[in-house]
């Protein structure tokens, strides 16, 4: 396994989909968080190469996680992908200002996700951990 990825989404089917898509390709080791709080826990003690966050979650939403990552010294190098239903909607615009590197519109395809992650991580050294 090479890269270290985090998927934050309250849907277990989406998490399983992302994990299967990235791990099947032998591309990344994927950790999952079901809630914003669980994500905060993982972000506080791990370093990720790519973090994929759903914007619409109860309690702590995806935008708040982006804002948190922007300020967190640990996650400065992480690439951030925001999942939203409307790529040109107001939520995505805010996401862009909060440091999102890319957007994924739900529903998305396996290949779409893989090529986006590949593109974002191009030139990034494989994590040694």
């Amino acid at each position: 396994m090479s890269f270290h990825a985090l998927i934050v989404d309250d849907s277990s089917a989406v998490r399983a989909f992302v994990r299967a898509s990235l791990e099947d390709a032998g591309f990344a080791r994927v950790q999952e968080a079901e809630t914003g709080f669980e994500a905060l826990r993982l972000l506080a003690s791990n370093t990720f190469d790519v973090v994929i966050v759903d914007v619409n979650m109860p309690d702590i939403n995806g935008l708040e996680l982006l804002a948190f990552m922007k300020k967190s010294p640990r996650q400065q190098a992480a690439r951030r992908i925001l999942i939203s239903t409307q790529v040109d909607g107001p939520d995505s615009k805010r996401g862009l200002q909060l440091g999102a590197d890319a957007f994924l519109q739900k529903p998305f395809e396996v290949e779409q996700l893989r090529s986006l992650v590949r593109e974002l991580l191009e030139g990034v050294e494989e994590a040694s951990s």
């Binding site: 309250d10 849907s11 089917a13 989406v14 989909f17 619409n56 239903t85 529903p107």
Partner: peptide, 14 residues
């Protein structure tokens, strides 16, 4: 809304 929204997302993906 959230139930339907999530259902829409995952239905499309599967």
């Amino acid at each position: 809304f959230r139930s339907v929204h999530t259902l829409k997302g995952i239905a499309g993906m599967f």
